[in-house]
């Protein structure tokens, strides 16, 4: 191409400098060319799908209302293995469907969201808080059940679309379950009546 051949040494250099100058002055004329924000004073609007670290969703009471049933699927699937769960037991030693200990070491967690995906009970979700610096390396970064429990309303406030979809799905599942139990009840009563004579 003729256009690219150099007539004079330094011409290419000057062309590049013109481009740099245009970029330098461009941001003064056109606000769209400003690409940075001054972070601690101002920050970009949060993204709906943003994710940092997991939390546990509860409905109603912050401890008894936890959706988690301690099935330990997330513990098994967690790639860096930062989740630690112990199920609650009653006096006879029978395993109850709620966690006694639920710890997440967020110094190990890499925020991959796999625990959220594999959870069959929609009990664990991703938070969007990112300003989490602390002075101690160990204790404050090991989150316990109490620190992890966040209300469903909080979940709605950070991921509105996703939370609405989850609520609808849970409600549908509950309705199905209810109709099923009613169905089995009526069918069992029917069978008992037929057996009686």
């Amino acid at each position: 191409m003729e256009k690219l051949s150099l007539r004079m040494v330094g011409a290419g250099l000057i062309r590049g400098l013109v481009e740099t100058a245009r970029n330098f002055t461009g941001s003064y004329c056109d606000p769209a060319r400003l690409t940075t924000v001054q972070y601690p004073e101002e920050s970009l609007p949060p993204v709906e799908s943003a994710r940092t670290f997991p939390f546990l969703v509860f409905d109603g009471d912050s401890q008894s209302g936890l959706r988690c049933v301690a099935c330990k699927i997330c513990e098994k699937e967690c790639p860096p293995q930062c989740i630690y769960i112990v199920s609650e037991r009653d006096e006879k030693g029978k395993v109850l469907k709620r966690p006694k200990v639920f710890d997440i070491d967020i110094s190990v967690c890499m925020g991959c969201q796999i625990c959220v995906e594999v959870c069959p009970f929609d009990a664990i979700r991703m938070d969007v808080k990112f300003e989490l610096s602390v002075f101690d390396r160990f204790k404050p970064l090991l989150l316990h059940k109490e620190d992890l429990a966040k209300s469903n309303e909080y979940y709605h406030s950070i991921h509105p679309l996703e939370a609405r979809e989850t609520d609808l799905r849970l409600a549908a599942a509950r309705a199905k379950q209810q109709s099923k139990t009613e169905g089995t009840k009526s069918s069992s009563s029917a069978s008992s009546t037929t057996k009686a004579p």
Binding site: V9, G12, R15, G16
Partner: peptide, 13 residues
């Protein structure tokens, strides 16, 4: 813009 800046720059050549 990037090509103008770089591809004919004598130092780069």
């Amino acid at each position: 813009e990037f090509e103008k800046l770089l591809t004919t720059n004598e130092i780069l050549l």
